[in-house]
Write a protein that binds this DNA or RNA. Structure first.
Lengths: 128, 128
DNA sequence: ATTTACTTTTACGTGAAAGTCAATTTTAGC
DNA sequence: GCTAAAATTGACTTTCACGTAAAAGTAAAT
């Protein structure tokens, strides 16, 4: 047992290229095992990839993602580092909340666009 | 009356560079007036910039933003175009909803990180 | 008149995040 | 054991969204 995934299985599941996953490894985001030179991805890697892609979708940079991952791996033991981290968390939180507002506003605008479309369609529809 | 803004006024207000605003003009997102060669921004331009930056924050590309702006300027009169547009709107909406979920999940994770930090701080605090 | 503070255009540069291509292995299926 | 499919590395290329530097024009204040 102890399931392994090949790289292409994961590229298919997540809709990314092999280059992308290798890139993430080069960048130190994931550390798949090896059998010879071939990468073997464990469920934990798969899960991590999922989180990386989520971070990517909301606009985190690779190094921001790496930073978060490393905090999970080993949270800083030193006082100053901890405080710095907490500041960053706070900034990120504000950033994400702003993004949420932006999204909500944009969703509302999309509703407007759609309504305008429907109106237009009705006009045209009647005319023909 | 009829207020004008200079380019640096706006860069200061929005925290972007002059290069950015000129770039947006090159890309056809804004069309400030001119006195001689100097750009004069009207309130409408200012408002548009605000929307551009909002689009940017949630990860729209320049051409996506341009597309939205042009829809506002003149909504397509042709049936096929309208339907295409509505499809795009629908896709965008799904995309934004996904992003909102991503954000909520990440906010929850940030809470975890913060709690871990606080726990750590307490441990260290007690020890010293 | 000169300084100071902006503003302009043109053009090349940059960093992030991959994409693409080529030239080898490696592995799996028979 | 062979061959086709899959995986590897490495180098080069691309796209996006500006940054940066140079050279020059404008405008108001001193």
């Amino acid at each position: 047992m102890n399931k392994y995934y090949t790289i292409t299985e994961l590229t298919r599941e997540f809709g990314v290229s092999t280059r992308t996953l290798r890139f993430y490894e080069d960048e130190g985001l994931i550390h798949p095992e090896r059998r010879g030179r071939t990468r073997l991805f464990r469920p934990a890697d798969r899960h991590l990839i999922k989180e990386i892609l989520r971070g990517r979708r909301i606009g985190f940079t690779i190094s921001e993602i790496r930073e978060i991952i490393e905090v999970y791996k080993d949270p800083p033991g030193e006082m100053g580092q901890l405080q710095l981290l907490m500041q960053k968390v706070s900034v990120k939180r504000d950033d994400l909340r702003q993004k949420r507002r932006d999204i909500d506003e944009t969703l509302a605008e999309l509703d407007n666009v759609e309504e305008a479309c429907l109106t237009r369609l009705a006009e045209i529809g009647v005319g023909t």
